[in-house]
Design a protein around this nucleic acid. Structure first.
Lengths: 145, 145
DNA sequence: GCCATCAATGATATTGATTATCAATTATAT
DNA sequence: ATATAATTGATAATCAATATCATTGATGGC
């Protein structure tokens, strides 16, 4: 089993790109975090370790990580792109609390199968999908009552 | 059965807002179109009828229509918000071709039910959801082959 | 080692959709 | 009428994301 680090380096070599301290550090920082993270948030953390890093580089490395299959873009519709781990994190959808933003990763194989069938029934071949479930978590419901 | 026009006017009155020629014209133009439309596209059409209208007004009226329950925002993830009819257009999801962008409205009651159950199984009360299915339509698949 | 080539970086400018501001205009209520 | 409040269009501002660009740094051929 290859490590994320190795995958990243393999991807760089394939693209004739170079490994650099900045890229390594940004990758490590991203990997250490478990939750979804925005480019801005990642930049803030990275800056603490090395204030000389520019945020353009953070954006660039995030794009590389997506291309390398290590990160996945998640769009909760609030105008900011978030990134989550992709490696060893198979596809899933998101259940987001409208109150506090707490997010749960969900996966329902029946839904997945039905999505494919719905697409096929219209002559489409499903390539991918996005599903965001929005609701109120228990805590937020109690607060309201 | 109230007309969209009446609903819009009722909403304006409720909010102590005023009916104006611009608002009426933009609403009519939106209602005449069946497909999803961006603010920019709507502005372009409206401009032909009355070149003096500013695009800020189009954005404003679109927001009013959403609030009045006549329009619904649709986000295909390409950075531009689209608007579709809401009145007499009950909830549905979208199946979008990655090749040509052709869009079909889809609805699967089993999926809808399962979404509710998934949310509940995590203690969430589902308020709404978004589901976008992306694929290749028949035409685009043939082109590829 | 030395030089030519090419990628990487950080700072900054730019983009593009959307929103806010504001002065001028128009409608409404008293 | 007159004071009040909403509307408009033009324009500026916002904000995330991207492009530009001069400088720096690495790599490979010799």
């Amino acid at each position: 089993m290859k490590s994320e680090r190795e995958i990243f380096e393999a991807y760089l070599i394939k693209r004739h790109l170079r490994g650099t301290p900045q890229r390594g550090m940004i990758l490590d920082t991203f990997l250490k975090r478990e939750e979804h993270i925005t480019a801005e948030q990642l930049y803030d953390i990275v800056k603490k370790r090395d204030p000389s890093i520019g945020q353009a580089t953070v954006y660039r490395v995030l794009k590389l990580m997506v291309e390398a299959g290590l990160a996945r873009e998640v769009d909760f519709g609030d105008g900011v792109m978030r990134y989550e781990h992709c490696y060893n994190h198979p596809h899933h959808d998101h259940l987001v609390c409208r109150g506090c933003g707490k997010t749960v990763e969900v996966l329902d194989s029946v839904i997945e199968e039905l999505q494919k069938r719905v697409a096929e029934s219209f002559g489409y071949e499903l390539t991918d999908h996005e599903m965001y479930l929005y609701g109120l978590c228990q805590t937020c419901r109690k607060k309201k009552a």
